[in-house]
Write a protein that binds this DNA or RNA. Structure first.
Lengths: 214, 214
DNA sequence: ACCTGAACACCGTTCAAGT
DNA sequence: ACCTGAACACCGTTCAAGT
């Protein structure tokens, strides 16, 4: 993600055919603005244009409207999210499916707490209106799919039986619980919160373990 | 919550000293608008004024700014939330603390799914900017306090021991999980969701039971 | 093909003026 | 004391015009 140009700095004219470069710059500027957006601030298409150094209507050459720009932002943020969780999983040297699932859970929660602006855009529909767009659902699906795979692979304790509950159901429930921890932590910051990583481990165990019980 | 006046209908002048009545009407109109607000729509102070039948600047006689109006909205919505959960708990005829806790959980989740607009305002910081305002935290605290009380009262199975984990920690974790179910269900509607009430019961059991284990 | 300034209907908020 | 219309700086979006 490139740094957005300082406001007002004049922009050298794009060479012919370099329209895609500007498109990318617009997306990156929007992402940078969303990251720095306090709860008091508004996100505006005009501020994105200003950061890139173009006139506001120029955005419409690359995106039909504000929602389309935000859809492209979502796509990029979700790709980064997939990469982040895969990296966290691959960093697990010794450990099976359980350790990998937990590593993914912790990485996603840590991301949310570190980048609340992006978490809100990704998972709370903040700023983005067209959540029912099927593309948005597809952006997030790989995250769920990998979670289901790992839950399926988790070995039961000796003497206990395999995962008995529907793994997709468990994956959705786990996602909801982790999502809730970040969302409530962000939105109700004045409560007395214990260390969040502990909560993540506790709730992951609580949801998966009964399904493994003998 | 009174029905807001139809847009444009002229308003008879308030009698002297009836300023508080208008204040209430503004709050109720805002609540009605937020309830009907689709994800595409914007909430505006001007639309509230229009619904009440007054000029936009008249709102400023009763509220210093938009955020103050929304704070009053939050206060009323939280009161209603407390009343709703208390009613759900009192409807439990036979059953101890566990049944009461579950009744409150189900009632709160059903409310969120039925009134996503209000859920977002109450718990996702939608539209409302000043979430760090300590008053907002206090609005929600009775909900947490009652949950802690009930968790403390839950009787362990015969032969098992009392709640061993910090009850406040369990209450926060339970709240986060329930919050996550509603939030993710609302914000990711295209996933294949099992019946939500089943998820509520499953996750409540999963979080509370390990603390009761012998 | 790519980008612009001017204009439109909106928004929150301020302020001088009316009853 | 209570409410208003006009005005300000913003917003998303459209459009005719420029290179």
């Amino acid at each position: 993600m490139e740094k957005p140009r300082a406001a007002g700095v004049p922009r050298s004219r794009n060479a012919r055919g370099s329209g895609d470069r500007l498109r990318g710059e617009i997306i990156d500027a929007a992402i940078a603005i969303l990251a720095a957006l306090g709860p008091e601030d508004q996100f505006s298409l005009r501020s994105v244009a200003k950061a890139v150094g173009i006139a506001a209507p120029s955005v419409y050459i690359h995106f039909p409207d504000r929602a389309a720009l935000l859809l492209a932002v979502l796509e990029k943020l979700f790709s980064a999210q997939v990469a982040l969780r895969n990296a966290a999983e691959e960093a697990v040297e010794h450990g099976g499916a359980w350790a990998r699932l937990l590593a993914r859970s912790i990485a996603s929660v840590e991301f949310g707490l570190k980048h609340p602006g992006h978490f809100r855009v990704l998972f709370e529909g903040r700023v983005v209106p067209r959540l029912t767009d099927p593309r948005v659902a597809d952006f997030g699906r790989p995250l769920l799919v990998r979670s289901i795979e790992l839950i399926n692979q988790i070995a039961p304790a000796p003497g206990a039986r395999r995962v008995s509950d529907d793994p997709q159901r468990l994956a959705l429930l786990l996602w909801a619980a982790l999502h809730g921890i970040v969302s409530l932590r962000i939105n109700k910051p004045t409560f007395e919160w214990p260390p969040v990583i502990e909560l993540v481990e506790q709730v992951t165990r609580a949801i998966i373990q009964p399904a493994l019980a003998g």
